[in-house]
Amino acid sequence: MSKNQSPKPQPDDGFGPHADEQEVHGVGAYQIVTRRYVERRIAELPAGPEAEDARLRGLLDIFDDLTAKGHPEPLTLLAAVLGIPVDTLVTHLRSAARSWGESR
């Protein structure tokens, strides 16, 4: 083989030098897809002051959905998409749970 020729590519069995890259890309892809899903769900929530209770219930539904699907950090993801601190989100979710429980 001359200096300018590349070696014959070897099949990637997941343990070679690219194994870590594949894992990072897989995790990154999952995070992107999940974030887009949450963004879409939030965009579908009703807007305006008159829809505050419905919006809060919708946030609680999204949180419950992420939790049910086994997301490792649903609070962190949801707060990041909303652009609010996790503590603020927790307050909103507690309020939604109380409001939802009263209306059943």
Results as ranks from 00 to 15, higher is better:
G14N: 12
D12Q: 02
L77C: 07
I62M: 03
A80L: 04
R35T: 12
S95E: 06
L45H: 10
D64Q: 11
P17V: 07
A68S: 14
I32R: 01
G14H: 08
S95W: 08
D20L: 14
E44M: 15
V38C: 05
T88L: 04
G83H: 11
W100N: 09
G16C: 05
S2Y: 02
R35G: 08
N4Q: 10
Y37D: 12
R98D: 04
V90Q: 12
Y37I: 03
K8L: 13
T76N: 05
H92F: 01
D12V: 09
I42H: 10
R40M: 07
V38W: 01
T67F: 05
D87E: 12
K8N: 13
M1W: 10
A51E: 15
L89V: 06
L89C: 13
A43I: 03
H25A: 08
P11D: 04
R41G: 00
Y37T: 13
R104T: 13
Y30W: 02
S103D: 14
E39V: 11
E39H: 05
L60P: 06
L59F: 10
H71L: 02
T67G: 07
F63C: 01
T91I: 00
R41S: 06
V38D: 07
R55A: 10
L56H: 08
Y30D: 12
K3A: 00
D20S: 05
H18R: 13
R41I: 03
A97W: 07
T76K: 11
A54K: 09
